[in-house]
Design a protein around this nucleic acid. Structure first.
Length: 433
RNA sequence: GCGACGGUAGCUCAGUUGGUUAGAGCACCUGGUUGUGGUCCAGGGGGUCGGGGGUUCGAGUCCCCUCCGUCGCCCCA
């Protein structure tokens, strides 16, 4: 049997129902902040990422899915969304003398060791804001995050960490100072950190190796190198967060794996997901637009890991038992809301007509009409299994009188026989999805 | 890329120091009288024991390789 390739995941109906709910909620939040949606290609020129993300990053060095187009052009399955987003806005002149706030959603690809919450094809929702220099837009992005967690009811599980990297130049100076300090101690560093010393020294700050952490105690501190403007920016940000009432934790070790970040960086993390605890992360990247050929443009954004957020949502809101009398809102367990049955097989045509009538009268409700024949008993069994709250029964006598019966599957309530119009009215009052 | 652990029915798992036709629960299908689900009862279908090789009279069980998964490292969302 041909199996899915490693790191590629199938999302089956039960999870997909939750997935759609979560994604819909998140997109609603974005729209409520008047962010505009864009759709971007999965394939980009390889150069976009080597230039945008940074040649020395792990992503570009060994995690990208590279392929050659038929004419030999180097293509890459996007490993992240920001570079492509900037490219698209630049290409169409949307960053010229104007601001933009956009979002996108879709799969990203990285060749990593698969693990729970970490797949080679994984889904991100990204939001980016261009043309805003001040920390107000940083706050806005963080607020977006808080609204996400509230919308999903997982705010208790998530916390915010922030840090500042300072301007690009300040960062460069710090980087050199760090290298100067660590180089003589090179042999005492853990293996991974030794490699990073040349390529991406700031990431050493993230090391979990105890010996390395001891060495770092006396290392130059990033905050001491942050330029006055960067410091003011950061102070403003913190003040704002406090004022608005967004709790945060400062984490001076919070660095980014992608080269383009400057000044503010932030990360929403959870302890509920094991090692893959980062659920949403972002920050400023004032240098990227210029790096990709545009005019210098301040920018900030974040990416949210949908796979992980769905997982987190699942931890907090378990799928209820199918048979429960009071279906929770929303109803993840059900694959239909209304199930149409016939008392005689010859009535199948009438059933389809009635189902269509209901679909028109009850948009939003999932109406499934029985297929495959069988006795009423087995039809009702199907109805129950579908999770539907109502079974509709079509009988010959009632059809002649222009009535149909509704049976309440999830509450103690007598079956009713009524006209289609009355039925629609009845079900309208009880939105189930 | 590194380390540890795991893989038996659709799912969760049992399977004795290697020994007959590999089991359970759940799920699924059928029946328990004509047109009423969930509970109950009876019956039924379903497994190349992840794959390949080896040891052995004999392998789900032992050994090697490989694939996949989980946890951690790493990386990051």
């Amino acid at each position: 049997m041909v199996r899915a390739v490693r790191g590629m995941r199938d999302v089956l109906p039960e999870e997909a129902r939750r997935w759609r709910y979560v994604e819909t909620r998140l997109l609603q939040v974005l729209l409520s902040h008047a962010y505009e949606e864009v759709h971007l290609p999965l394939l980009e020129a390889t150069e976009l990422f080597s230039r945008g993300v940074g040649e020395a990053t792990d992503i570009v060095e060994r995690e990208m899915y590279n392929l050659a187009d038929r004419d030999g052009e180097g293509l890459t399955l996007r490993p992240e969304g920001t570079a492509g987003c900037v490219r698209a806005l630049l290409q169409h002149g949307l960053l010229f003398n104007q601001t933009q706030r956009v979002f996108y959603s879709g799969p990203m690809f990285r060749y990593e060791r698969p693990q729970r919450g970490r797949y080679r094809q994984f889904y991100q929702i990204g939001a980016e804001a261009f043309g805003f220099r001040g920390p107000d837009v940083d706050v806005e992005l963080i607020l977006l995050g808080r609204d996400f967690w509230r919308a999903l009811g997982v705010e208790e599980q998530v916390e915010l960490e922030i840090n500042t990297l300072g301007s690009g130049t300040a960062r460069g100076i710090y980087r050199d100072a760090l290298i100067a300090y660590l180089t003589p101690l090179k042999n005492e560093l853990d293996e991974a950190s030794q490699r990073r010393l040349v390529k991406n020294p700031m990431r050493i700050l993230d090391s979990k190796d105890p010996a390395t952490q001891v060495l770092l105690r006396d290392a130059p501190k990033l905050p001491d190198f942050v330029d006055p403007e960067g410091k003011a920016h950061y102070d403003d940000l913190k003040e704002w967060l406090t004022e608005i009432g967004v709790p945060y934790r400062e984490n001076p070790g919070l660095v980014r794996g992608l080269d383009y970040y400057t000044d503010t960086v932030f990360e929403w993390t959870t302890r509920s997901l094991g090692a893959q605890g980062t659920v949403c992360a972002g920050g400023r990247y004032d240098g990227l637009v210029e790096r990709l050929g545009g005019r210098p443009t301040p920018a900030a954004g974040f990416a949210l890991g949908l796979d992980r957020v769905v997982l987190l949502h699942q931890e907090v809101h378990e799928t209820p038992q199918r048979q429960g009398k009071n279906q929770p809102e929303p109803n993840f367990a059900a694959s239909a809301d209304v199930y149409v049955c016939v008392l005689k097989e010859a009535l199948a045509g009438d059933a389809m007509r009635v189902a269509e009538q209901l679909r028109i009268g009850l948009p939003g409700l999932r109406i499934r009409s029985h297929a495959g024949g069988g006795k009423l008993k087995s039809q009702l069994k199907r109805a129950d299994l579908s999770g539907a709250a109502w079974a509709i029964l079509i009988s010959e006598e009632e059809m002649q009188e222009g009535r149909i019966s509704v049976k309440f599957l999830r509450e103690e309530r007598a079956q009713q026989s009524l006209s289609p119009e009355a039925l629609i009215e009845l079900l309208q009052k009880q939105p189930e999805s």
